[in-house]
Design a protein around this nucleic acid. Structure first.
Lengths: 337, 337
DNA sequence: AGAAACCCTGGAAACGGTTCCAATCGGGGG
DNA sequence: CCCCCGATTGGAACCGTTTCCAGGGTTTCT
């Protein structure tokens, strides 16, 4: 294996000089720089990553925690992160969280500066005692689509799910719907996801503002997933006085609702309006009306903040709220008669 | 920062002993092991990754090249890889390839053993001169859904796209279709993807075997994508003698075909049969008949082979062919009258 | 009782970079 | 002509692990 020592020897210079050339230090004369570069090319030398990291005292690694990779909504955010990181000198390593145990372990044993330089947490909000850990971590942490009141000292990129849920419901109300259902994730889920709960909160606000009752038979929750949503929607749509519109906590679940409607012979949007959340690719494919989140930009922005912090650690924390946007397609209409 | 030295000091043992405890060497008495473990816990010690890697002479990193992350077909394979790797001591770093330049750079400057321990290449087949590089790499490389005749010495997990294309077409022929179109990627694309070409080859074989003519107006190619496929399908479906069925080179493109059909007022499957390829999630959502590849298992198997090779480098190379399976849903039927 | 075998342990030398610090060189100013 | 300064350069220490090797203690066998 060729080392920096070999290069130094062949070029007739010292170790330090080679290192300086490698790190484009200005403290090298043009002549020697060229000579060294030639030798590097001739010997086909590449630096030893681990040695460099050790000496530098930096790992050049950023770890990202994502739940349920490859669920489209998180994958899209991840893609934004990957794209921005590929232009930096940092490597991105993925840590998929698909069990409550793994989730707990991550928050319990946060990586230290001896393992990674920074952490990106996507869509996983910490509990109270976990937030404590985050605050005391010895490396920068950026939360994407996750938050906690105790984390004012951390960078966060979030979205207002309450507002999103409210606007989704408001749109349906504005179309003339009066019986509006909601189908979402279990509020007490082992992963402590809260977006579905918040969107439901917004939904309730919208109904209250319009003086509409929040009827418990119009609310159903279950595990995240298309089939689960379909199974939840079926009985709701079979009610004597069934809802004329349904807000789903995600596009995936909205698709489940569409399936249930089809099974029951309900036409969308004539007999039933459905609105989803996220605007993942299938929403476009299926013509689903939905609340768009700028998923890709979410990820990009998070990485941007992380890189800035790595550069200048004492920068004041930023809490950025990404906008949502109502995208009207073909699954919503005024209620049929 | 607490180091192994601090631990040794507090425990009143030597460096080597602490290291042995950390690496569960059997050469430590139970008494000292416990003492060391206690000190490790008390000091909240964690090993320094870079130092360990340097000393070990292993990077403990595996790099994966994927094109067009987060395209569902590659993301699903990636997910399989991630899942298996999470149980190992290796970190997975993603390298997204979304331009021909990046693609070339990757094959030209393959990572060396000083950067990573192994490479996973997903869905990117090398050209002749690039294959040369791969063979001479100084680290194990596993190709997933990619291949080249010169690479018999490498592990590969592939699929028979020719057979898949043939079986898709055969199914339509068997349903009674005689005018069958094909919509796929440009054969000469800057990324040198060949799966679309191979599937088209299989399609041609099936038609030939049934003594059906391969008509050029029933073939259209373009950039990969739903909209592109829709634009390609529109004129084909507007022909005086339009095809009664279409084989799409991917599910994404099949969805584009469905959109074109809808625009033109053609009912699926009554007026037009459509068959896709991959069986990504949307295929199920949209009831698309398709050729299923076991994408997730693809990725898992590739990592499995890579890990085995890292363990015992002289194991003979394995070329594994993953099966495909026809999944009949609701977009195919005998031709209407 | 002495030697051999075994188990456990600690010191020190790697691993391959980066960087502080001292040294050398050449030139300009006094 | 000497001194000082800036521009380059090289040596050596250091980063925190792993592991080879030697050594000490105990046991077992003769």
């Amino acid at each position: 294996m060729t080392t920096i020592r070999d290069v130094a020897e062949h070029a007739g210079v010292g170790l330090a000089t080679v290192s300086r050339v490698l790190n484009q230090s200005p403290l090298v004369s043009e002549g020697t720089r060229q000579r060294v570069l030639d030798v590097i090319r001739d010997l086909n030398y590449t630096p030893h990553a681990a040695a460099r990291r050790l000496s530098l005292g930096k790992t050049l690694i950023i770890k990202v925690f994502v739940p349920f990779f490859p669920r489209p909504s998180v994958t899209e955010r991840l893609a934004g992160a990957v794209s921005l990181l590929s232009q930096s000198e940092y490597d991105l390593v993925i840590h998929n969280i698909d069990t409550p145990e793994r989730r707990a372990t991550c928050f319990e044993h946060l990586p230290t500066s001896k393992e990674v330089d920074g952490v990106l947490i996507i869509s996983l909000s910490p509990l109270d005692h976990e937030a404590e850990n985050l605050v005391h971590a010895d490396i920068p942490i950026v939360l994407i689509d996750a938050d906690h009141p105790a984390l004012a000292r951390l960078h966060r990129v979030t979205t207002d799910d309450v507002e999103g849920g409210r606007r989704a419901a408001e749109y349906l109300i504005q179309l003339g719907h009066r019986r509006i259902g909601f189908i979402g994730d279990t509020i007490n889920n082992p992963f402590h996801f809260v977006s579905s709960r918040d969107r439901f909160l917004g939904y309730q606000q919208a109904l209250a503002a319009a003086r509409l009752p929040v009827r418990s038979e119009y609310y159903a929750e279950g595990e995240h997933g298309r089939r689960e949503a379909r199974d939840l929607a079926r009985p709701m749509l079979s009610l004597a006085e069934r809802p004329t519109a349904i807000v789903a906590a995600s596009d995936t679940q909205a698709v489940g609702v569409l399936e249930a409607a089809r099974e029951l012979g309900l036409r969308v949007p004539e007999n039933l309006s459905v609105i989803g959340y996220d605007d993942i690719e299938v929403a476009d494919m299926m013509g689903l009306t939905t609340m768009r989140q700028m998923l890709y930009e979410f990820g990009q922005r998070g990485v941007e903040l992380l890189l800035e912090t790595l550069d200048s650690p004492d920068r004041p924390p930023v809490h950025e709220i990404m906008p949502t946007e109502l995208v009207v397609r073909h699954t919503t209409a005024p209620p049929g008669i």
